[in-house]
């Protein structure tokens, strides 16, 4: 397990390779379907959201307000990343992202942007909303809540030792491409 701690510098990110298991400590911003489309169409980041050298988490958490009116994250696993493929490459380049956390992997355009800009795709275990939610030590803020609703808003989380696997690195390698090719070849033998 490699400890990946903020600040997320290009050197730290370039040192990561496909198959590395990492534990992330620092700040994450969530963003999923509505946020990607909004940014792609030229929407401005709300004041307070800084993605430069940051990590974007494809996640729509369950968050409720406790008796004191504080946000409490009840469940927060990753959502399927493939839906953001039309937008992700541009967003990595434009906003200077160093990492994208999600599940299921992404395509060639994102892989190319990772290589070019020094970014990695970090695969969290899909469905593991409690294990991952426990790593969120603080809900700092929420943005675009009225516009997009709770699951689609931008949440700002502090995380500690958040577990993920590097499945697309900044050297052009993708575990998803490899597994797809191997399973395709295997299936061809079995049907």
């Amino acid at each position: 397990m490699i400890s990946l701690t903020a600040p997320f510098t290009e050197d730290k990110i370039r040192a990561l390779k496909v198959g590395d298991e990492v534990a992330i400590t620092g700040v994450l911003f969530t963003g999923r379907d509505a946020v990607h489309k909004y940014l792609h169409e030229g929407g401005a980041l709300p004041p307070g959201v800084d993605l430069r050298n940051g990590i974007l988490y494809h996640c729509g958490p369950v968050v409720i307000k406790d008796e004191q009116g504080q946000w409490k994250c009840v469940a927060a696993g990753p959502t399927t990343s493939a839906r953001e493929e039309p937008y992700q490459g541009q967003i990595i380049r434009q906003f200077g992202l160093r990492g994208v956390i999600g599940k299921g992997g992404m395509g060639e355009r994102t892989l190319a942007a990772c290589q070019e800009a020094g970014c990695v795709y970090l695969h969290a275990v899909g469905g593991a909303a409690q294990v991952l939610g426990e790593c969120i030590t603080k809900v700092r803020n929420v943005y675009l809540m009225d516009q997009f609703g709770a699951p689609e808003a931008i949440w700002e989380f502090e995380v500690k030792a958040f577990p993920a696997v590097v499945t697309m690195d900044s050297h052009g390698k993708s575990l998803h491409q490899e597994v797809l090719a191997a399973s395709q070849a295997e299936l061809a033998k079995l049907v």
């Binding site: 369950v62 009840v74 469940a75 469905g127 593991a128 909303a129 409690q130 294990v131 939610g133 426990e134």
Partner: peptide, 11 residues
């Protein structure tokens, strides 16, 4: 954890 905390297995 989900069972123990009575919280959603998946968000």
């Amino acid at each position: 954890l989900a069972k123990q905390k009575s919280q959603p297995i998946c968000q």
